[in-house]
Structure formats: structure tokens, C-alpha cells
Computed example of a mutant assay.
Amino acid sequence: MADRPKEEKAVADFLQSASHAPSALLIEGEAGIGKTTLWQATYELARSRGFRVLSARNPSAESVLAYATLTELLVDVEAAEFGDLPAAQRSAIERIRRDDHADAAPTDRRAR
């Protein structure tokens, strides 16, 4: 990122903010300008600073599996970390994380 001082400052500001409060970083722009490279550098920098980084990619915008990316994102998160969520949301996450949905109760619409 050394050749992108503006982006480097934005990432540093984001990580500083994220260490104290919920924060978001949006990387946008035209195709081919280096968004993926910037994301990967941000990912590595965050991890090196002790952040827990969850990352997943949806292979296509029209994924056949509606929750495939969310499942990938949450697969390694311990179930206990969802304990403080309202029951409807916790149930939805538990259902998404299970491999077998055949005999599961329908997801409460309030959880979506």
C-alpha cells in the first residue's frame, strides 16, 4: 500500500476506529483499479494488529445457495458467541450453520 497514501491513511483510520467502536470500510471503484489488492492488504494488516477477521466471497451474484456466503463467513465462529442474540436471530444463524436443513423448522421471518 506504500504507493497509495490516501488509501493507506483510510485503512489506518478505519482500523483505529474499529479498535474502539463498530466501524465499516467500503472499498469501491471501477474494475481493475486494485480493490482486491487493497482488501487483501487491509485483511493482512488487521490480522497482524490482532483483529479477528471473518471473510467470505460469493462466487456469483446469483448464487444458487442463498446463504452460502453467510455460512462460509460464520463456519468457524463458536455458537456461544451468538448467545446474546434474540432467539429468532440465533435460531436463524444456527440453521444456516447446520449442514442438514431437511428436518429443521422454518426460519422465523423476523430473523431475516
Rank of each mutant, 00 (worst) to 15 (best):
I33P: 02
S60F: 04
A10F: 07
P86I: 02
A46Q: 05
S19I: 03
S55E: 14
S55W: 11
I93W: 01
E30V: 09
A12F: 01
R47F: 03
I33F: 08
M1L: 13
S19Q: 10
S63C: 10
V77T: 15
T107D: 01
E7L: 09
R4Q: 11
E81L: 14
S60R: 08
L85S: 04
T107R: 01
Q40Y: 09
D103G: 02
T71V: 04
A105T: 12
S17M: 13
E44V: 10
V77F: 09
S63A: 14
G50R: 10
H20D: 11
K35P: 11
Q89S: 10
L38A: 01
A21R: 15
I96F: 01
A24W: 07
Y67Q: 04
R90V: 02
S23D: 03
G83H: 11
S55K: 14
R90P: 05
V75Y: 03
M1E: 13
D100E: 10
P106N: 05
V77D: 06
D100Q: 08
E30P: 00
S55R: 15
E78T: 07
R52W: 13
R95C: 07
T42R: 01
E72H: 12
S63M: 06
I96A: 03
A46E: 05
A61S: 11
A12E: 14
S23M: 07
T37R: 15
M1K: 06
T36L: 04
Q40D: 09
A68W: 02
F14Q: 06
V64C: 03
T69M: 14
R52P: 00
R52H: 13
G83K: 11
Q16M: 09
L54E: 12
D99K: 07
A24H: 12
R4D: 02
A68L: 10
R4E: 03
G50D: 11
A18Y: 08
D84Y: 06
L38V: 09
V75S: 14
L65P: 00
D3G: 11
G29D: 09
I33Q: 04
T107F: 02
E62Y: 10
T69K: 07
A10H: 02
A24K: 06
S91G: 14
L65I: 06
A31E: 07
L45R: 15
R52A: 12
A87N: 08
R98G: 00
E62N: 13
R52M: 12
S17W: 03
R90I: 03
F82T: 03
S60L: 07
T36W: 07
V53M: 11
A24G: 10
A61V: 06
E62I: 03
E81M: 11
A56E: 05
P22N: 05
L45A: 15
L70G: 04
R109C: 02
A18F: 10
L74Y: 08
E28V: 05
L25T: 05
Y67M: 11
Q16V: 06
A88P: 01
R4I: 05
S63P: 00
Q89R: 09
F51M: 05
D84F: 11
T37Q: 14
A24C: 10
E7C: 01
H101W: 14
R109W: 01
S63F: 00
I27S: 01
V77I: 15
R109Y: 06
A68S: 15
I33N: 03
N58A: 15
E8V: 00
Q40A: 08
A105P: 08
